[in-house]
Simulated assay, not measured.
Amino acid sequence: MPHYVLITGASSGIGLALAEALARRGRKLILVARQRDALESIACELTQRFGVEVLFRTCDLAEPIQLSGLLHELEQSERRIDLLVNNAGIGSGGAYLEQDWSREKTLIEVNVLALARLCHALGQHMLANGGGQILNVASVAAFQPGAWMSNYYASKAYVLHFSEGLREELGGRGIQVSVLCPGPIRTAFWRSAQLEIGHLSGSKLMMSAEEVALYTVRALEKNRALIIPGWRNRLAALGPRFAPRWLVRKLAARINRGLLPG
């Protein structure tokens, strides 16, 4: 049975960079995103560059019927997923009560519900097949509350704590679970979340998706539980453990409000 890596949110950003890094290592891929044209182009390019099989499936993870269809297809196929990368996610900036509820609901469906469902369904297959690996993508935002991006920060806190709990449950059963918590990255995330990168553009916290992907792949090979690329980001994640909660809230609110347009 052929082995594959399944990557969600694979059409850009970290997902695309991870796809390239893993293809470079000879891994067969199944790329999942909403943009068919982008996926088709990426699949062709990676196949030509690295000589590996790259499949793609279009799926809006916020749509339960589409996600069910994807999982049904994977279940019926003879392809074994031995690495699941839950990278798909969306952001939302601004005062929570002033946001459109449909967007906030979609954020929860993609960042939380789809991720949990993929872990449940493909995790069961990994158990049946003798093991595998799961990488869930959170953020350094997961370590603190974040006013003006409250729903996003909370969704990433879920991913962090869920992943660490799952690692303890499955570690003795042949499934390795890791969680990636990157800091700010030069991707289209900021534009889609309606944020302005502003003062962060020149920050030494800012990394490229390619840097994050390379660090992550190496950490996966070592079965690291918590993956935080960049020593500055590791310090940023550590800070909330020692500072008073009121100060953590205030600092995050100040930073995030500075990212809002106008």
Rank of each mutant, 00 (worst) to 15 (best):
Q66G: 00
A154T: 07
R232K: 15
E73W: 15
L251M: 12
W148S: 05
L170P: 02
I81G: 02
D60K: 04
V212S: 04
G89I: 02
S201K: 13
P244V: 09
L55F: 04
G91M: 01
N233W: 11
A253E: 11
I108S: 04
V159A: 08
K222Q: 15
V54Y: 00
G258E: 07
L238N: 06
S12V: 01
G94Q: 09
K156Y: 10
Q99H: 06
L160A: 13
W246D: 12
W246T: 11
Q35D: 15
L107M: 06
G69T: 09
V140S: 12
A33F: 01
G146W: 06
L71Y: 02
H72D: 15
W190V: 04
I65K: 15
A141P: 13
A225P: 09
G91L: 02
L6H: 02
S163D: 11
R49W: 03
G89D: 03
R34L: 02
R232W: 13
L259C: 09
A17V: 05
G239N: 06
A209C: 07
L122A: 05
L226G: 11
V140L: 14
H199D: 12
A154D: 07
S139W: 10
G230R: 10
N223R: 14
V52M: 00
G26N: 04
A114Q: 04
E45H: 02
A138E: 13
Y153Q: 07
